[in-house]
Amino acid sequence: MNDIFVLIEHRQGVIRDITFELLACGRDLANKNNAKLTAVILADNFEKIIDKIKTQAHKIIAVENPIFKEFNAESYQIALVEIIKKENPFLTLIGHTAFGMDLCSSLATELKLPFTTDCLDIKIDDEKLSVTRQMYDGKLNSKVVLKESPSYMLTLRAGCFPAEDSSLDAEIEKIDSPISVEPDYRKFIEYIEIVAGEVDITQSDIVIGVGRGIKEKDNLPMIEEFADAIGGVVGCSRPIVDAEWLPKDRQIGSSGKTIKPKLYIALGISGAFQHIMGMKTADTIIAINKDPNAPIFNEADYGIVDDLFKIIPVLKNKILEMKA
């Protein structure tokens, strides 16, 4: 079988964690199918990156050019079309991240490759490719078969393939960049960090997460009182920030903060994977949700299936009594 390609994702000079998950997945597939794993790096300064990748792949294709200091889907696409056309890998793996979501579909479309996104598992049988995906708010999985083709492209969800040590010694091929000027129709300008507020939810041992289940902004004070009683701070899921009920720095998840408290209590949060990514390493996770099928219960250690408005006032008093 032809090679498996993994596209290295880096930002602000640092390789992103997803890269090592992609490499572990790619190595596993390569081993099972008698193929080689090639890591493809587009960077401004490739020496900084190569040491960490060298043991992880059989081969590295490196394109060095100042325009690859930052990610630009359009520049990446121009370069990768050339490389993939020439090398013809069986499969190209990209992270299902802000980087991969911006790049994969248009790149695969230009290359006329069958592709799909946000894969949790990959199977190759007889050079036929099928994947597991998630649908309907994480309530169902699907088995998806891709149209037969000599070459495919997929994005993989973070957290599905554990990163692993490896002791390969990659052969390195440097190639000239097919592009050296950023296209005039899309230009990277700068990064903007989120503004820090008065509460840093990453520093608290106890975090109370509120989600869309609290229904109205007016219900927030009740949650704040509960957090005070228990000695924690209030964080939230994305819809609460979208509605401007809490500031962005309270958001927990892939596009918000990653927290590692001793105790996390999710109130009216369904447990979308983007949320889970921000809190799954909490020591103890408790969920209160009225939907017994909410995916959050597959992440939590303890749960109550009930209306949070019935539980929280009672629970608050019990905790205050115990403290007294």
């Binding site: 802000a98 230009k187 300008i189 700068e190 990064y191 903007i192 960090e193 918000g256 903060k257 990653t258």
Partner: peptide, 8 residues
Amino acid sequence: EGGLLEHL
């Protein structure tokens, strides 16, 4: 990720 923004 992490709420970082990219200005383009």
